[in-house]
């Protein structure tokens, strides 16, 4: 585990016995700078039979594009709502290219479950597959703890980028406006990472600090 991330847990009590920790370390020996589970180069977790807002069920094998982008979402989250338009634009910008975007919702709160997902996807015009990870297995395997967070996988389904959409995370305020944290976005991390991955080159940066709502694991 890298130093920066280890610092987040340096003072945590350890509720698990040492042999369990050893087992965990053998399965996730290296984590990302901002991710407790996944690191750049790790394989995309497989998933299957996840229900989607379009009424179909999807598994990881259903996505055959050169680049697959998994995005953690939550309808209730003001950061997701603030960046919905940016996500839709991102998908549009790769129209006709071998890129598939899959949004996934993890939380168990009613306003993040499938019926609410369907309503939200319709309202904001989601133009990508949006699945519900009710078992939370996909979210856990990705180490997805914030919404929205982008995970870009290459043709070999290895992680090439994870983190922010762009350099000015946006949030829907209580008055319904969209407020960008750092003014107009100037660096479009996810778009640049997808472009680089399509070209077979390593995104730079490969990881950014996603800013959003916490994902609640049950």
């Amino acid at each position: 585990m890298k130093d920066r991330f280890r610092s987040l847990f340096v003072n945590r009590p350890t509720p698990l016995p040492a042999w369990v920790l050893g087992l965990v370390m053998t399965t996730a020996a290296v984590a990302g700078e901002y991710n407790a589970v996944l690191d750049i180069g790790d394989p995309m977790p497989s998933f299957s039979d996840l229900p989607a807002t379009d009424g179909q069920r999807y598994g990881s094998e259903d996505f055959e594009a050169d680049v697959v982008v998994l995005v953690s979402l939550a309808n209730h989250c003001p950061w997701v709502r603030g960046m919905d338009a940016g996500l839709v634009d991102l998908v549009d910008s790769f129209d006709g290219q071998s890129v598939e975007v899959v949004g996934f919702s993890v939380n168990h709160r009613e306003d993040d479950r499938l019926p609410a997902m369907k309503a939200h996807a319709g309202q904001v015009g989601y133009n990508f597959t949006y699945v519900y990870d009710e078992s939370q297995a996909l979210g856990r395997a990705l180490g997805a703890t914030r919404t929205p967070e982008y995970f870009v996988f290459d043709d070999d389904r290895r992680l090439s980028y994870m983190g922010l959409l762009h350099d000015s995370p946006a949030r829907e305020t209580r008055s319904g406006e969209v407020m960008f944290t750092n003014g107009d976005p100037t660096v479009f991390y996810a778009h640049d990472a997808i472009t680089a991955t399509l070209a077979g080159t390593a995104p730079d940066p490969a990881e950014t600090r996603a800013q959003g709502c916490s994902v609640k694991y049950e």
């Binding site: 987040l8 847990f9 003072n11 965990v24 589970v37 979210g139 703890t145 916490s214 694991y217």
Partner: peptide, 19 residues
Amino acid sequence: EERYRLTNDDPNDQFDEAD
């Protein structure tokens, strides 16, 4: 001294009020 930093940053080790 900061002795505990309770976060939800690890899907397998999120805190609750008991922590």
